[in-house]
Design a protein around this nucleic acid. Structure first.
Length: 465
RNA sequence: GGCGCCAUAGCCAAGUGGUAAGGCGAAGGUCUGCAAAACCUUUAUUCCCCAGUUCGAAUCUGGGUGGCGCCUCCA
């Protein structure tokens, strides 16, 4: 497995800390609202990372947090007249629903910031003890200047940062680039007891605390969006390494943005679609198809046209799946011809190509290309005169690849009785060469969402995607 | 101002030193009663531009141009 490490800015061979195991931490959502389709990109792509690692034989521990306490949470909760806890509970539930719909599996651990206050306090105390943090009127700040490696992930220079820093809201800080570890209680805000009085954690510290809790002081892979590189991940490094004195993360992975009209989709710009809304109109697998068609680090434009293209590509996979099922019934269990053997070898080669592409920094676009090579090969080389084993090989490889991609999850279903009846009537009308009647029935089936195909082996009816 | 990313056909997208994968779309064709699906043919002598290195560059170097992002909450 090769991974592009944002810190070294090059691809590196993945060497886990513990052989055969991989500890992965991904920054999760702030649960103050539904997440949008741009937020879904890292969820889908790093879920793919997890699947690939597992396929390669690693024992993966995958952790993704919920940020359930911050300014936005408090604002939203106040606006809705509910507690921050209630708000978090609600949108964590919504997260599971949308992520699940998108085929994103739940992480091994989904820790909540508010349930790790003792761990957070412990790290802050360690940082204070080491002189890397200081308290001011109940607030605690990290002293970035005290950590020599500050800026190593983002390539930022301390002095440039200080000069370029925007107006500092909080004048208690020693330096504009210092950041809050603990915020003193303000009226109307939830708070927890701490050695520095009542208050709540800053944003960055939760990820240090929770990754340490579930993955240890050093973790293999840490992922998130490119917009988290600075300051969030830079700050995590400072906190974690400052506290433990050990390397925090070996491989940093950052996904590119999902754009709209070439601009980053974001809540603040208002140019976003929630996953909830998108799934009203499009199939979840179409969303996956779109995401998988581009490399995770590249920018990806989201548009209706892109969704239509992804949908059409996906339909090609379903068509083949259905066609293979059809062939499995028609073909015989006979001796393999030379052509069958060559075909089976070809499917294995395609699968190898598929795996190799994914092992190369999660190149899902190339892997998709490998999958479609197999699709083409099956479409051109298989027929009812093929040996069943050859068809089975195509079926197996198709499913190995699409299972990993989280595609073709909709199983073939028996036709509803009404559909079956119409289909039979149409078959009869065709036999009678009553084209008008048969076309009318085909139209009726189409309106019900079923496609009718006349093949040499008879009429085939399938559900339209 | 600082730190980065991106630029490949009508649309999307791999490829990062050896002569342009794949998908969508479009046109024509085979098949079909007509369709659908699939298949066949066509759709980039060329990879934003200009120099340079090299036997050889979309790929490396330098310089431009255009777009985007982070430096404030953001996946």
């Amino acid at each position: 497995m090769r991974i592009y490490n944002s810190q070294s800015r090059q691809k590196e061979t993945f060497v886990p800390i513990r052989e055969g195991q991989a500890g992965v931490y991904c920054c999760g959502p702030t649960v103050y609202d539904f997440f949008h389709i741009g937020n879904a990109r890292p969820f889908i792509m790093f879920d793919l990372l997890r699947r690939v690692l597992i396929r390669q034989g690693y024992q993966v521990t995958f952790v993704q947090n919920f940020t359930d306490i911050d300014d936005k949470m408090i604002q939203r909760a106040n606006r809705e007249g509910i507690s921050v806890k209630e708000l978090g509970d609600r949108f964590i539930k919504e997260y599971y629903q949308d992520a699940g719909a998108l085929g994103v599996k739940p992480a091994d651990v989904h820790p909540r910031a508010t349930e790790h206050i003792p761990q957070i306090i412990k790290i802050i105390q360690e940082l204070i003890d080491k002189g890397l943090a200081y308290e001011r009127d109940g607030d605690v700040y990290y002293s970035a200047a005290g950590f020599p490696g500050y800026g190593k992930l983002s390539g930022q220079d301390m002095e440039e940062l200080e000069e370029g820093a925007r107006v500092s809201v909080d004048e208690d800080k020693r330096s504009p680039i210092d950041f809050a570890l603990w915020k003193a209680e303000k009226p109307g805000e939830p708070s927890w007891d701490s050695p520095w009085g009542k208050g709540r954690p800053g944003w960055h510290i939760e990820c240090s605390a929770m990754s340490m809790e579930y993955l240890g002081d050093s973790i293999d892979i840490h992922c998130g969006g490119q917009d988290l590189i600075f300051p969030h991940h830079e700050n995590e490094i400072a906190q974690s390494e400052g506290a433990t004195g050990k390397p925090f993360v070996n491989y940093w992975m950052h996904n590119g943005f999902l754009n709209i009209n070439s601009e980053k989709m974001s809540k603040s710009k208002g140019n976003f679609f929630t996953v909830r809304d998108i799934l009203e109109e499009y199939d979840a697998e179409t969303v996956r198809m779109l995401m998988l068609s581009a490399h995770y680090r590249s920018p990806l434009n989201f548009s209706r046209e892109m969704m239509e293209q992804a949908h059409a590509s996906l339909a090609r996979l379903y068509t083949l799946r259905d066609h293979l099922a059809f062939l499995l019934e028609k073909t015989e269990d006979k001796r393999l011809s030379a052509a069958d053997e060559a075909f089976i070898q070809g499917t294995q080669d395609s699968l190898k190509h598929f795996d190799d592409a994914l092992a190369d920094d999660l190149n899902s676009a190339e892997a998709m290309g490998a999958l479609f090579e197999m699709v083409y090969s099956a479409n051109t080389q298989l027929s009812e005169s093929s040996a069943r084993a050859a068809v089975q090989a195509a079926w197996d490889v198709l499913h190995e690849a699409t299972d990993l991609f989280g595609l073709l999850t909709k199983k073939q279903e028996a036709l509803p009785e009404a559909v079956q009846k119409l289909a039979e009537e149409r078959a009869q009308a065709r036999k009678n060469k009553d084209w008008q009647q048969s076309d009318a029935l085909r139209k009726q089936l189409s309106d019900l969402g079923y496609v009718v195909e006349d093949t040499p082996q008879g009429q085939k009816v399938r559900k339209a995607l």
